[in-house]
Design a protein around this nucleic acid. Structure first.
Lengths: 182, 182
DNA sequence: CTTGACAGCTAACACTGTTAGCCATATGTT
DNA sequence: AACATATGGCTAACAGTGTTAGCTGTCAAG
């Protein structure tokens, strides 16, 4: 990535973080860089390419934070620690999370293996059970997007919901590990 | 709702279902009704109001289908039946589901009690445990939007993930009902 | 010295939601 | 019967969107 391209990405990211996805227009990005909108097309084929690069940022950051949560040796159950990290990332970067995870993923524009890397912490937490790993992901993603969209009632105790489900999934993991059939 | 307003909603719904949310422009809607775009504003204050009415349709339809699944006395575990109905609704009406459930809800434009009505089947399935009900909702919503966005790997066995999680939640429900503390 | 690539620019197109203002029709009211 | 008003169409226009075509200056390589 050339210097200019990096400047453009930095401007796009700032705009997204501070003013949300609606403010992310080619003219606004260009303005922040100090050039005109059509000049952006010398560095990116179209707006989708800029958004794809933002998705790559979002994926990378999530992967890093999940890995950090895995490494952090706490008294907490590992599932809960992971869940907390997931939620913290989404709430701290709501617009980035949305652009990254609530639309089709621009896989061709993604660094090799990044998608798997982001998924691995959940797979490890599920002790390799892919069905549980996917369920955990769906649950965490669902909780987070519903919270971001203000879909839960105002006073809802979301911590309790996270806790309850993490326990339920933890039981399921141990059951299948021991070979129990429901 | 006046006749014209209903015509407009029908046109909007058709447009949404057949061509997706990007095709849902005021000019396209008006064209389908046989009038010009500015005339729409004699019937709806703005585009957001049309979308809010679509959200009401989406909520109503989901509530009806969940209630039907509850009433259908099958050999299946009730949680699985409900989950199946939820997924079927979303996959059969992907654009409507997205517009209804993946953005802030226009609550003031919603019929009284509709939001609660749509939530009740899940609450009943969770035997009144609100944390589990919310978790079930988050899980189902997460599964469905990830599937709609093509986020799962091509060959992923999503049925298995649904089944595994429904069982896990079912266990959690019976445990708490019996008063067990994990 | 010249050629070519690079990176900026302006002007423009087709589209978006939305507003202002005009006009015909239909419905009451005096 | 005549007048007033509300209703629901219309055109023209504005500010914004992504994007393309085509021009220009700069700078490095042959």
């Amino acid at each position: 990535m050339t210097d200019r391209a990096q400047q453009i990405m930095a401007a796009a990211r700032e705009l997204l973080d501070t003013e949300g996805p609606d403010a992310l227009s080619m003219r606004r990005i260009a303005e922040r860089v100090g050039i005109r909108a059509p000049s952006l097309y010398k560095h990116f084929p179209d707006k989708a390419a800029v958004e794809a690069a933002l998705q790559a940022q979002g994926m990378t950051q999530l992967a890093q934070e999940l890995e950090a949560a895995e490494a952090g040796i706490g008294a907490e159950p590992p599932l809960l620690a992971l869940a907390r990290a997931y939620r913290r990332h989404a709430l701290a970067n709501p617009h980035l999370y949305r652009i990254t995870h609530t639309r089709p993923l621009a896989r061709t524009a993604l660094p090799d293996g990044l998608e798997d890397r982001a998924a691995m912490p959940l797979v490890r937490a599920a002790r390799g059970d892919i069905d549980i790993a996917r369920s955990l992901w769906a649950f965490a993603h669902g909780m987070v997007v519903l919270e971001l969209d203000g879909r839960f009632p105002p006073g809802a105790d979301l911590d309790a919901a996270w806790r309850t489900s993490c326990e339920a999934f933890a039981h399921a993991i141990h059951d299948t590990t021991r070979g129990d059939t429901a």
